[in-house]
Every structure is written in structure tokens, then in C-alpha cells.
Design a protein around this nucleic acid. Structure first.
Lengths: 351, 351
DNA sequence: ATGAAAGCGCTAACAA
DNA sequence: TTGTTAGCGCTTTCAT
């Protein structure tokens, strides 16, 4: 028996009487390298030897230690994904798509939520780098990614998605936020609205800024003035959105209240839908991002749809292209959005 | 300069001119161990030496290689999560909660989707074990988890969540599927229904079987017969659910059509809501799992709510308790469900 | 306070 | 076909 000397091996982990290749080799009566060959399916082992090794493996419950393998080979066959919130219905399909592509390339996915906090993003990214993930897909929260420069220089491929990197050149896969928002507002204008509000995300977030720009462009393009009170930017949490929206709809200031709204993302849209549902007056609504059940609400919600799964897939594909050696300069891929009229965006202005 | 000899070091990774502690030590003019002390914040380094080491670290862009560290220390400070689908709105908060707890314990989360396929689950779990994750949280898809025995024996703590392990004793955190379904059906019966259908998941899935059992128990408890055509089990994909539901609502057989439905999970509920929305006749509905916007539909959907985030948190907490050495026998934690009446479950029977 | 040596479990290079 | 040796980058142990 090999495993009787337990107390003497106090340097092993508490539970960890993990057999190693050496143990397997001893048990099978072969050399270490032969075990390695069998475990990795390399050629040059007689069927008979292979069988004996396999037996030893199952008898001992051997499982190759990938940490050691990684240390030797340099590649971890894993990629990191850093996003804002795993539980956000917009990011869930994105992360699923990244996982799918990673799987096709034999890689595991390690992921973490930054909670929209730049410091936490940095901490997470660096932890992933310390683990030597082969590559990173990042939905950035921070506003300065120079901390990634040494990592990228050291060979950790990095692709940003949904928002571009700040202060460094890097691959990015984005949706057309500007054009999408502009088209959404133009759609409302085409339906007769002249006083249109925008409830958006924090302005330092790239997509939020772009969508605001799109909103302004559409208004300016139609020669419509924009009152300051028609724009409410802030965190996505429901209380803030609710308060801002109610304030905007109440009017009260010198300007008359808006008759239509553009919302900056799916979380905001859902909260605004709740506010509007409780309102006697009918207010038109176009929401950025599609969301489940939008078509079954009353009225069904008109949206500017992105394809989160496609964002994720494209980002991951680009990442693996880099890992395969593609060395052309950083590229920015942009995916179109699509306006889906469902009802809420076609409500005419009501006083 | 230290990094001029690039071509000679062909054994390094393509990009990977990663400085090591040795490089840092050379540059700072100190010993290797001193660098290790600084990097890990261990005591016994003069402020002056520490400063020199820090300078070398930033100058070289050094980042500790955690693979090597893991190899030495035995612990990876990471846990694995295997679930059915990252993008499922039920599992997203669960995985988020696991991540949160892991983070509190300084661990990273590695996760993968099994796509409800037992082989893929096994493959994923074993890949995670090979990476020597400290522990695993598993939403099982397979029906035999004996393959995990050597891993668990070797010290990889494992907690099952949402569904119990099959054919092994292991920790599990579950919702009360039986009682929840039974109460949901009892609710429909209390509102006058006598012909109630159940549209559920594949019967080999533990929760699906339990919910079916709950359905039957409630019907039997009220002395109501159950026609075979009132039960439709199968995969969650919309086409199947739609077809089965339409068939059930059409009646057509010897039994009269059902006047109310219990649906077995959130994905199924959403599809059934779509079917019912297109129907002239009003059919009562109670759905297992709460879902976003259920309260804004017409009618609002009565649900049996679980708390996915709590499931995840409890599972992760139990996992880390195990990792901290808790060695009591496997336990099964059960969380209650809550019936939330919103309208669809209170519709009286219509012929 | 600091460093030298050994070795974690594996793979690459080279013998036999 | 099979085995031996060196060493991946780090932590541990033990000297100094």
C-alpha cells in the first residue's frame, strides 16, 4: 500500500492526499513520463502499458493537477470576463455567449462582477492576470485602463465590450449607441412629439454619454429646443429613476412637461414602465435595450434593441483570434441597433 | 538592462516576457525571498528595502504568478460554479450571490453552463477539479454523481443547489418544490377550479418531479381526479411548451379542457403567458418562480416565488463553512417558497 | 532582517 | 517504446 504514511506527510493539504503522476507511475510500475503520455493522450505507449496506467489512475483516483501543467506550459486555457453585474438581464446572454465561444476553444471562463466600480474592476482584472488567464473580456466600469498596459504588453489579450477602454488603445466591440438613441428620438418626433425627456445612466459611462448625444442630435436635427429639466442622468437604481421620472413628468417648472421619454437602458426602462403604468396620462416611451416580455406589456414597449449575445460572441471571437496570433492594430467593431415599434413609442402626444 | 536576450529564451511564451520574482530580486539587488516577503506583505523587511523592491516591481511590471503559488500552497482561492444556463433569469441572481460570498472570502468564481446535459456537467466539474478549485457549487444536470466521490474524498468541498445530488451523499440547498406546487394548486382549487393542468419540466429533473408530486397531492387532497392529458412534461423550450399547452387547452379528448394551469418554472410560465394572451377564454395561471414584470402583465401573474439569490448565498456559505473545516455529515437545507397572488391565479373557472 | 536551497506536480528535451 | 533530468515561479525551511 502506498497511502499509510499519512501523519508523516504533514506538508500536504488537510484533506489533500491527492495522488500525483509519480504515485501513479509507482503503482503501475512505469516511469513518470509514461503516465504523462497516457494522461495527455500522447502517442508512443503500448496498449498494454496504457491499460496498466489507466488502472492505476482509476484505482488511485488520480486527476492531473492543472496548476502544475500551467506553470510548465504557460497557457491556462482560461479566459476572464469582468462585467458589471452577472445578474443583469442584459449581460447574462453576453456572458453566456462568451462562455460558449470559450468552450469551443477548450477554455474555461472565470468571471466577476465589478458592480460598476472602477476600483473593483481593476482589482478583479489584476487578480485574473495574476492567475495568468490567456485573455480577458472586459465591460469596463473604470475611466482609466492604463493599469492594463503592462499586462497587455506581457501578452494577456484583452477585448473590451459594450464600452471602449479609457486612455489606452484596445480592441472593442460596441453597439451603436449614438445612432440608436438618435433614431429612437427621431421616431418619437415623427409621431408628433416635441417635448421629449431622456432618463439615462451616469454620464461618465460611455454608452450613456453617447445615447445622450444621440438624443440631442435628433432634437437639434428637428429644430427642437431641449429644456434642462428634460434630461435626468444618474445611477440605474429604481429609486433614483422613479424620482427623476416623476419630477420630469410633473413639469412644474417654466417648461411644459414632456409627452414622451427615451430611457437609457433596460433597467431604467423597466422602472419607468412602472411609473407610467400608475399615471392617468399616456406618455410615449422608447427604451434602449430590448427586454423579455416587452411585447406583452400594456402598451407593448417600443425599444431600440441591441444583441447582447452577439456582442459577447464577437468579443470572444476577436479575443481568440488574438490568442491565435492575430497582431494587427486594435480594432473597434460596431454592431447596429434595431428599432422595434410595439406601441408605446407610437402613442401620440397628450397634453 | 535585463531584457535584451529575447531570442535566446524561446522556451518562454510567445508574448510572455513576464518578469519573475527572480528578475525583480536581481533588479532590486536583494534576495528572492525578500521580494516574496514584500509581495505578500510579510513582516521582516526594512522600509528602505521594501521601497527598492516596490520600485523594481513597478519598473518591471511584475505580477505574481498565482499558478506557481497555488502549486506550492495547495489552495487556489477559487471556487467553481456549474449551472444549467448562465443566461437563465432564475440562475443569474443565484450565481451572482455565489460570487458575492466568494468575494467576501477572497475567492474567485469560475463557472460554466452544463446546458442541462449530464455529460457536459461531468466534464466541466472534472475540469474544475483538475484546476484544483477549493470547492464547487453545482446545480446538477446529471443523474449520477458518483464520479465526484474521489474528488470529494480528495478534499474538494461540494455543495449542490436547487437540486440534490444523485447517488451520493452531499450537501444540498433546495427550495420546497413539493409544498410550493401543492399550495399553488390548492390556491387554484380554493378559487373553484376542478380541472387543472400542469406544464412542467423533464420528469427526471428532481424539482420537476417534486412539483408534479405536489400537484398530484393537492388534487388528491381535494378528491379531484387527474386526467392524463392534463399533465405535460418535457424540455423547457418554447416550441414544446407552446404545443403542449395548446393541446391541453383545446381539450378534445374525452375529458373537458382545463380551466387553470400550474407551470413548472419561469421559462415555461413566460411561454404559457404568451399562449394565454392569444386565447379568447380566460384561463387561470399559477407559475412556479417569480419573474420580473409578472406584476405588470394583464392579468398580473400569480406565482410561487423562490429566492434564487438566497439559494445561492446559502449554498456558498455552506461551502465556505466546509472549507473552514466543518466536517459534520452532509446536510440538506430547505428554503420555503411563497405564494404571491396577483390576479392570474384568482380568475374563476370559465367554461 | 535577509538569503540559499529544496521542492510543489507537471512537461520539454534528451537519452537509452 | 520508455525513462531520466531539468526547471516552470513560487513558498517553505532553515541558516546567517
Amino acid at each position: 500500500m502506498t497511502d499509510t504514511a499519512q501523519p508523516a506527510r504533514s506538508h500536504r493539504r488537510r484533506y489533500g492526499l491527492r495522488p500525483t503522476m509519480k504515485d501513479v507511475a509507482a503503482r503501475a510500475g512505469v516511469g513518470l513520463k509514461t503516465v504523462s503520455r497516457v494522461v495527455n493522450g500522447e502517442p508512443g505507449v503500448t496498449p498494454d502499458t496504457e491499460r496498466r496506467v489507466q488502472e492505476a489512475i482509476t484505482a488511485l483516483g488520480f486527476r492531473r493537477n492543472d496548476s502544475a501543467r500551467v506553470l510548465r506550459k504557460g497557457r491556462t486555457a482560461s479566459v476572464g470576463l469582468v462585467l458589471e453585474d452577472l445578474a443583469d438581464p442584459f449581460y447574462a446572454p453576453l456572458s453566456r455567449a462568451v462562455e460558449e465561444v470559450a468552450r469551443d476553444h477548450g477554455a474555461l471562463l472565470i468571471n466577476g462582477s465589478s458592480a460598476e466600480d472602477g476600483d473593483r474592476e481593476r482589482e478583479l482584472v489584476l487578480a485574473l492576470c495574476a492567475r495568468r488567464v490567456d485573455g480577458l473580456v472586459v465591460i469596463p466600469a473604470g475611466d482609466d485602463h492604463r493599469y492594463l498596459e503592462p499586462e497587455i504588453a506581457a501578452g494577456i489579450a484583452t477585448v473590451f465590450v459594450d464600452r471602449p477602454a479609457a486612455r489606452i488603445e484596445a480592441d472593442a466591440v460596441l453597439s451603436e449607441s449614438f445612432a440608436g438613441a438618435r433614431d429612437g428620438v427621431a421616431h418619437l418626433i415623427a409621431h408628433g412629439h416635441r417635448r421629449i425627456g431622456f432618463v439615462g445612466d451616469l454620464p461618465h459611462i460611455h454608452t450613456a454619454a453617447e445615447r445622450l448625444r444621440g438624443y440631442r442630435a435628433a432634437m437639434a436635427g428637428a429644430g427642437l429646443p431641449v429644456d434642462g429639466s428634460w434630461i435626468a442622468l444618474g445611477p440605474t437604481d429604481p429609486a433614483r429613476v422613479r424620482a427623476d421620472t416623476e419630477r420630469m413628468l410633473a413639469g412644474g417648472g417654466p417648461a411644459e412637461p414632456v409627452t414622451a421619454l427615451l430611457t437609457g437602458n433596460n433597467r431604467i426602462t423597466v422602472t419607468v414602465v412602472r411609473v407610467l403604468a400608475a399615471l392617468p396620462r399616456r406618455v410615449a416611451l422608447v427604451g434602449f435595450d430590448d427586454f423579455e416580455l416587452a411585447d406583452l406589456l400594456t402598451p407593448p414597449v417600443t425599444v431600440i434593441a441591441q444583441e447582447p449575445a452577439l456582442l459577447g460572441r464577437r468579443a470572444a471571437e476577436l479575443l481568440f483570434r488574438r490568442l491565435d496570433g492575430a497582431a494587427d492594430p486594435p480594432r473597434r467593431v460596431t454592431l447596429p441597433t434595431r428599432l422595434i415599434p410595439r406601441g408605446s413609442g407610437e402613442i401620440p402626444p397628450q397634453p
